[in-house]
Design a protein around this nucleic acid. Sequence first.
DNA 1: CGGCCAAATCGACAGATGTCAATATGTTGG
DNA 2: CCAACATATTGACATCTGTCGATTTGGCCG
Lengths: 111, 111
Amino acid sequence: MSRQRIADRAPCCATVGSASFDMPDAVELATGFGALADPVRLNLLSMITASGATGTCVCDLIGPSGRSQPTVSHHLKILREAGLVTTEKRGRWAWYSVVPARLAALKRALG
Amino acid sequence: MSRQRIADRAPCCATVGSASFDMPDAVELATGFGALADPVRLNLLSMITASGATGTCVCDLIGPSGRSQPTVSHHLKILREAGLVTTEKRGRWAWYSVVPARLAALKRALG
DNA sequence: CGGCCAAATCGACAGATGTCAATATGTTGG
DNA sequence: CCAACATATTGACATCTGTCGATTTGGCCG
């Protein structure tokens, strides 16, 4: 079969059904992967993961991250909004822990 | 044990060893996830994946993507440079196929 | 209460990213 | 060789992102 001319093709999302996920899914997934698309956030996530169910205090993340406190807070917000971590206030400190289900979902999307 | 004061902590990368991967790895991984951090690229990748070992002609990706030809070319370049796809010229067309090993590596990094 | 501390938010700014029109590069068929 | 075609590259532009200093918010303890 010969190739179709580009101009003859359907516009925009008309044939998006051929993809293995639809647009809302793609945006959702992209947000998740976007949260992983920064070395600082990967390090934060890995430290939080390493602390297991106990979680990690933000104050233990700042030094190792090599970034200022507002910057770390900013990155944690992105991880939070992507659903990759949750936070809990314990006394004067904020403790973060991972959401394994969310990580698993992204993993699953990778095939 | 009580929390340390933030000011008392080691600066920058001094304690980065506590993370589960080091900095070069983190940058490499971040690049990979960054390539997945866009809905258009996720759709492209999913269409390419769906075409299996045969691969997909770029001209079959443009319409469904809902983006202009240069934009698709741009996104394919990002996927290529992240090592997620490879390209091969067949006659007048360029055929793209996925690099499963690269996807697997990202998957593995997710725990 | 009042001062200290942890964390979040704000404001600003440089640099990266997504997008398209225009153009360039390379290939094929007549 | 020429015209049509598929893809890549360039240039321009608006928006998004990462970063930090300054400020705000809210809990703790003396």
